[in-house]
Design a protein around this nucleic acid. Structure first.
Lengths: 348, 348
DNA sequence: AGGTCGATTGTAAGCGCTTACAAATTTGGC
DNA sequence: GCCAAATTTGTAAGCGCTTACAATCGACCT
């Protein structure tokens, strides 16, 4: 059992016990080259015996690493982000990093403030994991030049490692599912373009929808194209609009499950239901979707978070080396989505 | 605009610009006494002009504060915790603190490891906010003696500030609602005792239920008392047990909304529905509850997180002073719950 | 006017670690 | 076997901040 109380175990104590100099211990601890196997072993023993752990503050101050990384999310409450954050946190914790959570709370002012002092952030963490953050060009450049290790989930065209899904493909598959069931009047309830170059998820999903329709020689009816954002409320409003002022489609492709929830809710208010009156499919496989019987394209959320976290850790380790090898080019990984058929869709 | 790049603005630069010594600047910065108003003003100007921000690492190393606090949650994905975390994070961010997220991932081993090195934690953060953590006596003592500022949400009998709701009262009110609607055969689907002295939420809710029943001169039917944990799956299993092996009650009190969701799900599988066959009420007012028409006792989750965070910040500020005033005794704040009537309950 | 006390400010010694750079040790080639 | 090169280890100077403790500076008494 590591002793705890009595002041602090310092690197000097390890040095004394192992009969080596502080410097050698420091190097051994950080796996730097030019340390004999014997020295490494001695240091290892001493560390175990003393229960030594380096002071992150001291280490940071002296030019080393902070031992923590930040996760930046648009909000921490949404299902997607909560899951991704937890998965990433697990990876970070297992690698010995503290996770600093920064929620933008969907507020541009918070984001502005954060990017206004990136240097400050860089001082407190070694790396940053971005979750679906819409970045302006200057922000992207500032990040890339901040010296921070970077990785992201669900972003595009960014100069760092990214993990996501093929949104167009998922939308195409979802729409094709509807089409294969014989539906022809298909509505789309999805988000609209955000403008941020790094975040085009909604756009890609729209495109996938259009491609699938075109692939079946079908025209997209403008009356059946609604902007529903990606919230429950948005889905509800869009569905109400459809029922009240437009026309009822035979099936609906919802940009994400939460939008579909809202649509289902609105349906109920109009005395409609799925799949009796309309079929509906979403994207996500939200925790509640199986409960509501929503057919959806499942995306691996925790996997995306964990994968991106691992990529970040790798970069961190590489840049921790004395002669940082030439940085490998940013990679972009697309994880698979999968159709999960439930009861909200049926043959026309 | 604060300049950023060119190396770092150090306290020494501020001292030079303001014509004071480093030491005085340091004191002025931390609002310590014995600094003339003039000096304070000069320092203020210089700081603004230079865009100075203290290095948390250096400050920490020298014996100051880390400028960050940890939030420890059983899991980050559950609705309750995600919301509480975000609310707390906002308070911390606004107070200039970084938020380190630590999820126990519902795994005892993670908790053990964390408490095995509290000294390490104490080195990286100034305070800790605990969210519904079940603590053993030794763990509680270790925390209390760690020197960390502490606050919690939903814990009981702890020697630090706590914020929560009156669980017994909420359960009583929920049950009384059912009783007032004329129901007499009321089942309870709730969690069971966890054993951890700091966490007795489920127990208190059971007690409230029993009190309400007794208040109406009703005996609790053992056949209608089920352990459902606090998960969707638990609620589903409990409801299935009720339908298959026990008897159908006229109404159900679910210990939390997620349990109620599971029960509703199971009902559907058995061709039942609420409120047609049984009325059902939960506690929480989960995001999806309005969607499902679940009547529930709403509890202010974000408020609890924010409130507790503020209490922590206060302690932090007080303990930051040179002659820490005698610590005020731990306070316990109970926030109000409110009945939200929806469609899942009706007169018998 | 000399002396004292309290308020303010300055000096300097670290906090625990990293990192040039120098010293010591080993390896290898001829 | 002897010297240069390579490898391993040690020395010492900070990193930017806090904090005793010492030094100043007035105001206030006698």
């Amino acid at each position: 059992m590591p002793q705890a109380k009595t002041s602090r175990v310092r690197i000097q104590d390890v040095a004394a016990l192992s009969g080596l100099s502080i410097c050698t211990v420091s190097r051994a601890l950080r796996q730097l080259p030019n340390v004999s196997a014997q020295a490494k072993a001695r240091v290892g023993d001493a560390v175990a015996q003393l229960g030594y752990k380096a002071s992150s503050a001291a280490s940071r101050l002296a030019g080393g690493n902070t031992g923590s990384v930040a996760i930046i999310a648009p909000t921490a409450t949404a299902w997607f982000f909560a899951r991704a954050v937890e998965a990433a946190e697990e990876v970070f914790a297992d690698s010995g990093y503290d996770t600093v959570l920064i929620s933008l709370r969907n507020r541009p002012s918070v984001q502005q403030k954060l990017f206004g002092d990136l240097a400050g952030l860089a001082q407190r963490v070694d790396g940053v994991l971005l979750l679906n953050i819409g970045l302006s060009e200057p922000e992207m450049a500032a990040l890339a030049g901040s010296g921070l290790a970077l990785a992201s989930v669900g972003m595009h065209g960014v100069p760092w490692d990214n993990v996501g899904i093929d949104n167009a493909e998922a939308a195409r598959a979802a729409t094709n599912h509807l089409l294969a069931l014989g539906h022809r009047d298909v509505a789309i309830l999805a988000g609209s373009e955000t403008g941020a170059p790094s975040l085009v998820t909604a756009n890609e999903r729209r495109r996938g929808f259009e491609q699938a329709m075109a692939g079946h020689g079908l025209a997209v009816d403008p009356d059946l194209v609604l902007d529903a954002g990606s919230s429950i409320e948005g889905g509800r409003r869009a569905m109400a609009e459809l029922a009240e002022n437009r026309k009822m489609p035979s099936a609906i492709f919802a940009g994400c499950d939460e939008t579909a929830f809202g649509a289902l809710m609105a349906m109920r208010e109009f005395g409609l239901s799925a799949p009796e009156n309309v079929s509906i499919i979403g994207i996500d496989d939200h925790q509640m979707s199986w409960f509501l019987g929503l057919t959806t394209m499942a995306q691996p959320v925790a996997d995306q978070g964990a994968f991106a976290a691992n990529l970040l850790i790798e970069r961190l380790h590489r840049s921790g080396l004395p002669n940082p090898p030439p940085a490998s080019p940013p990679s972009n990984h697309l994880l698979d989505t999968k159709l999960v058929e439930r009861t909200s869709t049926r043959r026309r």
